[in-house]
Design a protein around this nucleic acid. Structure first.
Lengths: 250, 250
DNA sequence: CGAGCGGTTGAGTAGGATCAATTGTTGTGG
DNA sequence: CCACAACAATTGATCCTACTCAACCGCTCG
């Protein structure tokens, strides 16, 4: 249980940063960036590591630079629900709160750009660009959370799986900048079956069965356990129950 | 289907407003309040009315002054999930977005304090107090949404009901300023069984059965259909699975 | 080689959904 | 004043989806 010395990564100039235009700092001008450079430092985590435990003191907030992390809540008897999926440029922590309300776990290797909390809170108060961007990001997260609530409360297991795959596919599509809506899309699952079950409010057995079912029905193709091909995105979307089109299965 | 002329309510001075210190305007100083007075107007809605339809254009944002409203999402086949419960001082609408993503419905008579969207957005940019308060409120809503996700994804029907009752009881307790944690609490359900089922991701039959079960087991008492007494708040909390104490049922 | 881990599949079960009947309660019109 | 419709809610019977428990596969690592 001994903790390795925290891996501090070398400083990167904000100007060279991959997430410069999507993270909290997106709207900051030159002076503001320089102020941020003063209070930032990088930390690297390995896949599987817990970055923060629920209830822990957090004296930083951070942007995810690369990798994927999750927020999860756990009940006393061990039931777990993922409540956040953090991708590059997403924000971790809450200004004005010292204790973490959720476990934060790295599902892949993760690099964080951390800001010491106190000076960051001061900047929020003083530089409107930072506060405005954070507000915008928080509103987006709230919308995502509400979409997620519909999934958890009302969708069937099959629809849940299809929805998650659609989210991941769409994300990869924007990165690959292809596939208007109908084309073939390919990506790797960044989550284990267990993590997927925590996301979807299912058991891992049900996740596995439904993935198999979608494969049998030709909605997706699988190579190995993790590599997924979606031959027809519209088909996947209609399986997800989201429908832009009208569910024209037959 | 004819729409009554929208009920415009008489103007109230911000200084006399019940929600002055909890709404978006909570941190505003005198000048800022005066600017808000310029762009605000009141609207009243009757119980059951839909304030906004999903997809509609919204050219205002608003604070709930009194009454209770809900945000709901609906799938094509009619499955519905509530994704927000709006109480007095809560905020409706999103600066920077013209179209409503959810249906907003009054469950009781509701009064809104509306701000025309364009000037309000300008104020967000210029008066940091407004933006800061809105950020804070949005972060609180995000936390609430994540708590709700745990409920939807992992709790049993009985725990869901107990959780909802605990939330409503706690809210009334703060209003009545009593009942540290153990005392008797009494309140009226502001929701129909159907609205509760939309909140909890259940059917209304299951809601009814579980309320009956909690009554049989002495966790709550019922007078009529809507008036609820909680003799032991800790008992209710442990039924909800939230537990501050360890679930010491036997 | 065996242990550990991620994943798949099968058999049996249970919790909540579905379909249906019934009881108030309220409000409307004759 | 009562009959009737509309609506909220309760309760019962039955069904089915997803959970539970269990065995097993393939791969990696020590």
């Amino acid at each position: 249980m001994s903790v390795k010395p925290r891996p501090l990564a070398p400083q990167i100039a904000c100007g060279d940063c991959q997430i410069r235009h999507r993270a909290v700092c997106a709207r900051c001008d030159g002076d503001e960036l320089r102020a941020l450079e003063e209070i930032k430092y990088y930390r690297r985590f390995e896949a599987g590591q817990t970055l923060v435990w629920s209830g822990d003191r957090m004296d930083f907030v951070a942007s995810v630079v690369n990798g994927i992390a999750t927020l999860t809540q756990t009940m006393e008897d061990g039931r777990r629900q993922m409540v956040g999926l953090l991708l590059p440029s997403d924000f971790v922590g809450r200004p004005g709160r010292a204790r973490a309300p959720y476990d934060v776990t790295a599902t892949t290797d993760v690099m964080l750009c951390c800001f010491r909390r106190e000076p960051f809170e001061a900047m929020i108060r003083e530089t409107p660009h930072l506060a405005q961007r954070l507000l915008e990001m928080t509103l987006d997260e709230l919308d995502a959370a509400r979409e997620w609530m519909l999934l958890l409360g009302r969708k069937t297991a099959r629809e849940k799986i299809a929805s998650l795959l659609a989210i991941l596919a769409r994300r990869n599509a924007t990165l690959q900048a292809r596939a208007g809506s109908g084309g073939t899309i390919t990506f790797d699952l960044p989550l284990t079956r267990e993590a997927m079950s925590d996301y979807l409010g299912l058991t891992l057995e049900t996740v596995s069965r439904q993935i198999s079912a979608l494969r049998r029905d030709g909605v997706i193709h699988l190579e190995g356990k993790r590599h997924i091909t979606v031959p027809d995105m519209n088909r996947l979307l209609s399986e997800a129950g989201d429908d832009s089109d009208g569910g024209l299965v037959d």
